[in-house]
């Protein structure tokens, strides 16, 4: 019984960088929420939603954030927690130093509070042709088979959920540069590894050759350290560096294999 009372009085302190609208100035607000065992940052934010009162006892508008799957596969709940970009669903309160500082990712335009607009990544997915065209006017039949070994490493690349954490950690993705970002350099490798996708290999590589493409990478390798899915991003970037070098030579000198 005594233990229970103790647990009830225990609180979690959150310092959240808030912003009321895309154009308004950001400000910090502190919240105290009751502690529960095995809380993650999202459940702490839900407590604020239930009782939107800040540490000064003022009733405020509840903090807004984005979430969907709650199991680190959708990429929607990325935010900067204690200085490090990560998924808030898998950020456990017990493992975080208090007070927990939460900010929106600074690489993307803020919509409100912790909600950012990641649509630049969607535009770039289209730019690098992050898909495999299989539709024809008639049934094209089954495609070529994929070697198992290749499938295994390609599967790791397919875990990318365009969460934007690698873009946030990259020193070369910012408002002074038009760099496409690490995730978008890894995905062409995934689609080029696929035997059907390989038929459009050069289109994806040529997209990486464009301004703001792969050449802007400065090899700080933060991306591979922060990727929540453990994707070998720097291996992919180096692989695409090699592929784009060869593609550039083929483009200039000519090649029948530049499909």
């Amino acid at each position: 019984m005594v233990v229970e009372t103790k647990e009830k009085t225990k609180t979690v302190t959150l310092i959240i960088t808030r912003q009321d609208s895309p154009d308004s100035a950001p400000y910090e607000e502190t919240f105290e929420v009751p502690y529960r065992k095995n809380m993650n940052v999202i459940s702490a934010l839900m407590e604020i939603q239930k009782n939107p009162v800040n540490a000064d006892g003022e009733k405020v508008s509840p903090v807004q954030w984005e979430m969907a799957c709650l199991e680190e596969v959708c990429g929607a709940c990325s935010m900067v927690i204690n200085g490090r970009a990560q998924q808030s669903c898998s950020a456990l309160v017990d493992e975080l130093e208090q007070p927990i500082r939460i900010e929106p990712m600074s690489t993307f335009p803020v919509v409100r509070d912790l909600i950012v607009d990641r649509s630049r990544m969607f535009e770039d997915l289209k730019r690098i042709k992050a898909w495999i065209p299989i539709d024809g006017t008639h049934d094209l039949g089954p495609g070529p088979r994929m070697p198992e070994k290749k499938r295994q490493w390609a599967y790791e690349l397919s875990k990318c959920m365009t969460c934007g954490v690698c873009l946030e950690a990259c020193p070369n993705v910012n408002d002074k540069s038009d760099f496409i970002g690490p995730a978008l350099l890894s995905l062409p490798r995934l689609y080029n590894a696929h035997p059907t996708g390989a038929m459009n290999k050069s289109e994806r590589l040529n997209a990486l050759l464009e301004d703001g493409g792969i050449a802007e990478c400065g090899n700080s390798q933060n991306c591979v350290q922060v990727c929540p899915k453990g994707i070998p991003l720097t291996t992919s970037i180096a692989a695409m560096n090699r592929a784009t070098t060869i593609q550039a030579f083929k483009n200039f000198f000519g090649s029948d294999n530049a499909h």
Binding site: P171, K176, G218, Q221, Q225
Partner: peptide
């Protein structure tokens, strides 16, 4: 130009390669 394009963040992400960068 490349120097001024970067927004260095070793304080947040103090990894070896980021320091080298």
């Amino acid at each position: 130009y490349i120097v001024f394009e970067a927004k260095n963040n070793v304080r947040r992400y103090g990894y070896f390669r980021n320091w080298m960068f």
